[in-house]
């Protein structure tokens, strides 16, 4: 089991910089252990390319334990590849067949320009957070644990939303490249808790205004985002975001 290997063909997007047109390059990679993660396989490819004196494929990665959200790869037509509830580092080569051709593309969206090869600039998401994804009210010194009673189910729901790692899979997958699932998660996890409720209206307005400004599309409720979200964020949070936004704008 452990030493099973496969031979694969990789069709990888190569793009020298933001202004380069970009193209696909095909590489053959032999004896890839099926126990390797997809990023470890990319390491093997790069080792091979470096040994051949070629330019290695640039890709983003950091924690390699499924929580940093850096590894923005669209693999065989799906964000983070053919598995659910995972980032690319948690995708394993055992899911691919021997002799398979694997297509690897960067996130493609106007709001996420390609920096190089498979690396994209996701700082538009940071800009949305900067617009209101925080609590600015003075919450005082560190209180004792559980001095603010929060019902268990509310705490759980807030945590479900707070699971968002800002990887951008929702934006990459959405046919309109909308960031609604991301904004919904951020608005919801703060609006559900007492410390965040104070600024809930201002936050929803500011974050949506920033989202619209930065070149993200609008939501068509296709639900594709929640299918590819590595953290299983539900589109019910988008309904909650809509509720928060309509409340902020329509109720005086």
């Amino acid at each position: 089991m452990a030493n099973k290997t496969i031979n694969i063909k990789l069709r990888v997007w190569r793009q020298n910089g933001p202004s380069d047109k970009g193209h696909f390059e095909t590489y053959e990679l032999n004896d890839v252990p099926t126990a390797a993660s997809f990023l470890e396989m990319m390491d093997l490819l790069n080792e091979k390319l470096i040994n051949e004196g070629k330019d290695p494929v640039a890709f983003d990665h950091d924690c390699r334990e499924g929580i940093c959200g850096a590894c923005s790869m669209y693999i065989n037509g799906r964000a983070h590849g053919p598995d659910t509830g995972i980032t690319t580092c948690q995708l394993h080569m055992r899911l691919f067949k021997d002799g398979e051709t694997i297509t690897v593309e960067p996130w493609r969206a106007k709001a996420f320009p390609v920096i190089k090869d498979l690396m994209v600039d996701r700082s538009a998401l940071d800009e949305i957070i900067k617009a209101g994804g925080y609590i600015s009210v003075n919450t005082g010194g560190a209180p004792d644990a559980n001095t603010i009673p929060i019902p268990k189910d509310v705490a759980e729901r807030a945590f479900d939303a707070a699971n968002c790692i800002g990887c951008g899979a929702c934006v990459a997958t959405c046919k309109n490249h909308s960031a609604m699932l991301f904004v919904a998660a951020k608005v919801s996890h703060l609006a559900l808790l007492p410390q965040g409720q104070v600024e809930a209206e201002r936050r929803a307005k500011a974050m949506i205004a920033k989202m619209d400004e930065l070149g993200f599309g609008t939501c068509s409720n296709t639900g594709a985002c929640e299918v590819e979200c590595p953290k299983g964020i539900s589109i019910s949070f988008i309904a909650k975001l809509n509720r928060e936004y309509l409340k902020a704008n329509l109720i005086p």
Binding site: R78, T103, R108, A111, N176, G217
Partner: peptide, 14 residues
Amino acid sequence: NMGKVGPVGYKMAK
């Protein structure tokens, strides 16, 4: 929304 796709679309999208 058509303007939000960026310069290149996906080669493969399931």
